[in-house]
Design a protein around this nucleic acid. Structure first.
Lengths: 312, 312
DNA sequence: TTGGTTGATACCGAAGGAGTATGGCGATGG
DNA sequence: CCATCGCCATACTCCTTCGGTATCAACCAA
């Protein structure tokens, strides 16, 4: 069975006349007759009864007509959908994330992407940064989100936004009552670092932050992630530094206080393969950049941390 | 786009390797490569990425693979369904009926046919006998049911069953109390005939019945159909003759009494075109005959009117 | 470097599709 | 009652296109 035969038969069924069908299809009449005959032979069914005025559908012909229409329209659909997929408007985007990007950057991007390309399915997996690189190379994910990545051959690392830093302080301390706190005031509290492993990480950022400010500090412990770090702090007289994405959350018995005169901003980045980017990824990057741009503009205009104002 | 291309692509997608797909399809490798290329060109989409070990699907390729499978299976379905329609196992059967066949013969046949061919839709229309013949010739119906048909060229008239006759008598008369009544006893009551028009009809059967028994009778009136006739009888001191199909029903203030020593039986027949019978009709006739046969056998064994015992 | 994969390309022969011309059949009109 | 018209089927030819063989280029692995 061939598509040509389906098209011919559908035209004949609708015209009720082989000659008119031929005219409509811009071919001569004999090919139509022959193809219909071939179709009838293959199906072992009489599809048309020949009348003086043209042809009538038999019951089998009516059944086949209805189905042939469906097949043709589904085939057309398949082509349209495939072309859409080629343009990156259809398909699935596999995303990995690490750490606190899940609180702000990732949902913001997903939201914007869904608005732009609602037909694209998205999968989201938590994944360490080294694992993200492997997954990218294996084609298991299209893009990874995180804060600090090592440059590597074939990888693009793209900065999305930078957020101000906050100190996370037990709510019952006097320090927690202020609007801002200078880094030097935190020297009295042991510092909890996070995450463990997968360097460079936010832990390194915190260390260099204190070093640059020339503030003595005491690393009390290293937590696996920010949630664990905050749980540690709430339980005692320790502190840590968090990016705004986390400070925007609320934790019991904890206050987040903006660090005074702090030029360091925590980056949100993404990583993807430099070459062979599938269309879905290209579409996603377009959306990502348009959001980043409007976020930057906003940052310039807003008093501080404009990135947050893009969300929601 | 051609079915061949869909089949080739599906095989390649499943094998992940053009050579293996070629082997599975029993063709050599170059045709597969070329058809896939043609497909990609027509779709304007890259479906496969060529790797050292074979090929991988792109996102567009995955989309097309899923849709191609659907198209192929739907096409196969269309062929199967059409073949089924050719065998008379699919489609619609248009039936007309006249008079009291609707009470017993028609529902019995429909029931048997539905059991045998549950995929076939049935339409049922009340239609005068002359109109049935026109509708058959126009192809508006496949078969008509009724009791008395005139032979005509191109028509087959097939007897389905014969039913004993009953007298319909007002319940308050003494005649109504008996198990059987001889025709001569009915001479005291005026007779209501039915149906009006569309000869020959059951009215003629009643007339010849009395004549053959050499019983004088008085035609009181002619009713349009059996229901009207029975309503007339219930209202006074008239009677009529009904076939068993009607006697099996219950009417208020009426009794149906078997006519004694009556050799006349009321036929149930059907009419259809002798030629160009669509498969659905042939299937229906098969079922009809098998039911008729088992009904006849039953008639021989049962004490009286065995046909009824087939129903329910 | 060198086999052994892989898919792509060139060329050829064969199959099948479309076009033109024509035939047969039934309906219609004079 | 015959001529004509409109319909579909068939015969024949041309050309497109498909598949097969042979070969090439690229890549991995030993």
């Amino acid at each position: 069975m061939e598509f040509r035969q389906l098209r011919y038969f559908v035209a004949v069924a609708e015209e009720g006349n082989i000659g008119r069908a031929a005219h409509r299809l811009n071919v001569s009449q004999p090919p139509i007759s022959r193809q219909i005959q071939a179709l009838e032979y293959e199906l072992g069914a009489v599809l048309l009864t020949r009348t003086p005025k043209g042809v009538d559908l038999t019951e089998a012909g009516r059944v086949f007509y209805a189905d042939a229409q469906k097949v043709l329209s589904q085939a057309k659909n398949a082509m349209d959908r495939t072309r859409a997929a080629e343009r990156g408007e259809l398909g699935r985007l596999d995303i990995a994330f690490f750490g606190s990007t899940v609180y702000q950057t990732v949902p913001l991007m997903l939201r914007a992407f869904h608005r732009a390309q609602s037909e694209i399915e998205v999968s989201l997996t938590r994944m360490g940064k080294a694992e993200q690189v492997n997954a990218l190379r294996d084609g298991r994910i299209h893009i990874g989100f995180g804060r600090y990545y090592n440059q590597a051959a074939g990888l693009e690392i793209e900065l999305i936004s930078r957020e101000p830093l906050y100190a996370a302080i037990p709510a019952d301390l006097a320090l927690a009552k202020q609007d801002e706190v200078p880094l030097s005031d935190l020297a009295s509290l042991p510092v909890v670092l996070y995450p463990a492993g997968d360097r460079p990480s936010f832990a390194d950022e915190i260390i260099s932050l204190f070093r640059e400010a020339d503030v003595e500090f005491d690393v009390d412990s290293v937590a696996t992630d920010s949630t664990a770090a905050l749980a540690l702090i709430a339980s005692g007289t320790r502190c840590t530094i968090v990016p705004e994405a986390i400070a925007a959350l609320r934790f019991p018995a904890l206050e987040f206080v903006l660090i005074k005169n702090c030029s360091t901003l925590a980056p949100s980045s993404c990583v993807y393969l430099a070459e062979d980017q599938p269309p879905v990824l290209k579409e996603f990057l377009k959306v990502l950049r348009s959001v980043s741009v409007s976020a930057s503009v906003d940052t310039e205009n807003a008093s501080r941390g404009g990135f947050k104002s893009i969300g929601a």
